[in-house]
């Protein structure tokens, strides 16, 4: 169970960033009063263009950054990711292309290392390792340094390592970014498997097809605000469309018209 409650996060922009964003405002609201819930056994997708605030929300959930206001509550015990971040991390797994593994080590070493940091005993680490390494076909290169592996193999290792502690909540930022078709399929299949095991899963993506195929519910985020939340059918019905891409553009257009800005 994951509850995001009125999360707001503002960043101060450097002069360079202001120039890039074409704004005179020194601050950017990356997440604006965002609230949603994700149930166990559900995949929730945050869909939005680049810079919409998806990664900021995921970072707030994963405790890497603290929201200015609001809270993120985790698990049945409703642990606050803001006030009890260390405890919350034990329930979470955060995977993003920004988080890298030290490529000097082997997958085997890294799995053991992160297992120990999550407080697992050797037996549990070994059991989880067998399961995940078999799942992703890592056994054959378990003793090869990460630096010598392909991008797809590295991504598989990252996923396996992030799941070392069998977390309740899995946060996945752009899960298929930069992956070949076969690896992407392995990843999406595994996410379905995790959902069936009752895990709470939240993914962010800007790829409409992936969101439509993968997510039980989708939250459309534009300019830091959650504009619509629902199942694919609910979103299509409410926008009177038959395609998620069309639905997204209608919502995007509405937002820009309300704000009086250009598309």
């Amino acid at each position: 169970m994951l509850k995001v409650k009125n999360v707001t996060k503002t960043f101060r922009l450097s002069k360079k960033q202001m120039k890039l964003e074409n704004t005179t405002n020194h601050h950017k609201i990356a997440a604006n009063d965002v609230s949603f819930e994700v149930e166990p056994g559900e995949i929730f997708g945050l869909l939005g263009p680049n810079g919409a605030g998806k990664t900021t929300i995921l970072r707030c959930i994963s405790t890497l950054i603290k929201p200015d206001s609001g809270d993120v509550l985790i698990g049945d015990e409703m642990i606050s990711a803001v006030n009890e971040d260390n405890k919350a991390r034990g329930y979470l797994s955060f995977l993003t292309s920004e988080l890298k593994l030290e490529d000097h080590f082997t997958p085997n070493y890294l799995f053991n290392f992160f297992g120990r940091l999550y407080g697992l005993d050797d037996e549990t680490i070994e059991k989880n390792k067998q399961k995940l390494f078999n799942q992703f076909g890592i056994n054959e290169f378990a003793e090869v340094k990460v630096s010598q592996l392909s991008t797809g193999m590295k991504q598989k290792i990252s996923i396996a390592v992030s799941l070392v502690h069998d977390p309740e909540i899995i946060i996945f930022d752009e899960p298929t970014n930069g992956l070949d078709v076969l690896t992407a399929k392995t990843v999406t299949d595994y996410l379905f498997q995790l959902r069936n095991e009752g895990k709470t899963i939240i993914v962010s993506t800007h790829i409409m097809n992936l969101a439509a195929k993968l997510c039980d519910r989708i939250g459309i985020i534009i300019d830091g605000k959650l504009r619509m939340v629902g199942t694919l059918d609910e979103i299509l019905k409410s926008t009177n469309t038959t395609d998620l891409e069309d639905a997204f553009f209608i919502i995007f257009k509405q937002v820009k018209e309300e704000e009086g800005g250009a598309l």
């Binding site: 988080l99 890298k100 407080g119 390592v161």
Partner: peptide, 17 residues
Amino acid sequence: GEKERGTIATLLVTPIK
């Protein structure tokens, strides 16, 4: 170096104090 390589954030999402 870990910041440059992006490996420090991987450590920071674990429960280590």
